[in-house]
Amino acid sequence: MALERTEHWIPAEGGIGLHAWVLRRTDLTRPAAAVTLAHGFGGLAEGGLMHYAELFAEAGFVSIIHDHRSFGGSGGWPRQDIDPWRQVLDWRRVITYLQDLPGVDPDRIGLFGSSYAGGHALVLAGSDPRIKAVVAQVPTISGYEQGKRRNPSPETTKRLQDRFNADERAQLRGAEPARQVLNSTDPDVTSVYKDPAMDAYEKRFPVPELARFDRKVTIRSTLKAQMYDPGVWIDRIAPTPLLMIIGDEDTITPSDIALAAYERAGEPKKLITYQGDHFGAYDDRFDQAGGGARDWFIQHLSPASDN
């Protein structure tokens, strides 16, 4: 079956456009259920989630996947600045846009968030009744827990706090927000992550937008991440059906935190665990994770597979 892929810019607050791709089967003849997807911290639509969007579209859904504000083709300044609550509100705008698209059944909208956006998915599913089914894959649950309490040492925590404070003072004087590398395994390079698996992920899913993305994000993005605890929304999601997908060796969004959050969720819910790290869901465990997510949406949204 053939897929149609069209490029969209969604008007968002501040006069910017959110860049998005819409994918759908060319043989659909009546309004179909739809799934909206979003990436994690520093992710891009053309990265590892595009094959999820394709998978859902092949199953009969209309898929829309967008770049977060200040990333990829989306507008917004300063570039590569990550504000979780701004991203949540932007995602609401994407949902509204999706509901108005020709060929979409506005009453059958599913939500798929991965990593940082997995946390956003919990917030939206717990607060927006337009969402009829949700998948939170390797989700952020507690920025405080994973970003501060599990920090390797008090000295590291203090150095990071000193950088937050210096950046805040500089901005008060009119400076641009300071930046740091997204990922580096070099102990002498200050970065958000120090995970060789992330380097492998980016080599596996190269995207054209990376030419415009120097792999640096604002330091204040890390500060905001430490203040973001989307897991508090998880017991507010029911009766919206919730699927969580968790890697049993995940250290980016730690497995034990995610499993504890899942226990707090109400029914209907389902858990898929795969053997591997945070990035396994995008790569060698894609069939398990993606197939499980597709089947969850089929079960709860009934795609237009009989068109």
Rank of each mutant, 00 (worst) to 15 (best):
L89K: 13
V123M: 04
I245F: 03
R212A: 11
I131A: 01
D248Q: 02
R220N: 15
D284R: 14
A45S: 07
P239E: 04
T26R: 15
R215Y: 10
L124Y: 11
S74L: 06
A211H: 12
Y144M: 12
R285T: 03
A225Q: 11
Q171A: 04
A238Q: 01
G143M: 08
Q180R: 12
T157A: 14
T190G: 12
T253G: 10
A260M: 11
Y144T: 14
T29N: 08
G15C: 11
H120L: 11
V192G: 00
A133F: 01
W85V: 11
E58W: 00
R24M: 03
G15Y: 07
Q299H: 14
I109C: 10
Q288G: 06
L243P: 03
S115N: 12
P129V: 03
R69V: 10
K270Q: 14
T240D: 09
M244Q: 13
A170G: 01
E145D: 13
S184R: 13
T29Y: 00
T251K: 15
Q87P: 01
D295M: 02
S115A: 11
F112E: 00
G47W: 04
V22G: 02
A200H: 05
P78E: 04
M198Q: 08
Q288T: 13
I219H: 10
V138C: 12
G75E: 12
V62R: 10
H51F: 03
E155Y: 09
I234M: 08
G113C: 05
Q299M: 08
Y116V: 09
I10T: 10
R264Q: 15
G42Y: 02
L271P: 09
H8Q: 12
D67L: 01
R163F: 00
G43V: 04
I272G: 08
G73L: 12
L49P: 01
D27H: 07
R294D: 00
R92L: 15
V138A: 08
T26S: 13
G47A: 12
A304N: 15
Y262M: 05
R24V: 03
I109G: 12
E263Q: 15
G43R: 05
D90I: 04
E7Y: 02
L182W: 09
P177Q: 10
A260Y: 07
I16T: 06
A238P: 06
K158S: 05
L23C: 08
G47N: 13
Q161R: 13
R149F: 06
I16K: 00
H19D: 03
W85D: 13
A45H: 10
F71V: 09
G103L: 10
N151P: 00
A121W: 07
N165H: 08
R204D: 09
D195G: 01
S127K: 07
D188V: 03
H120A: 08
G291E: 05
T251F: 09
D256L: 08
R79I: 03
G231K: 04
P254S: 09
H68E: 10
M244L: 13
R86N: 07
D229F: 03
A178V: 00
L49C: 02
G247A: 10
E4F: 00
D295H: 02
E168Y: 09
M50V: 02
L223R: 14
R173Y: 02
A238N: 05
F279W: 14
Q146I: 05
S184I: 08
A304I: 01
W77R: 11
D105Y: 03
H68F: 11
L44C: 02
W91A: 04
A136I: 04
L124N: 05
P208A: 07
G15S: 08
L210Q: 15
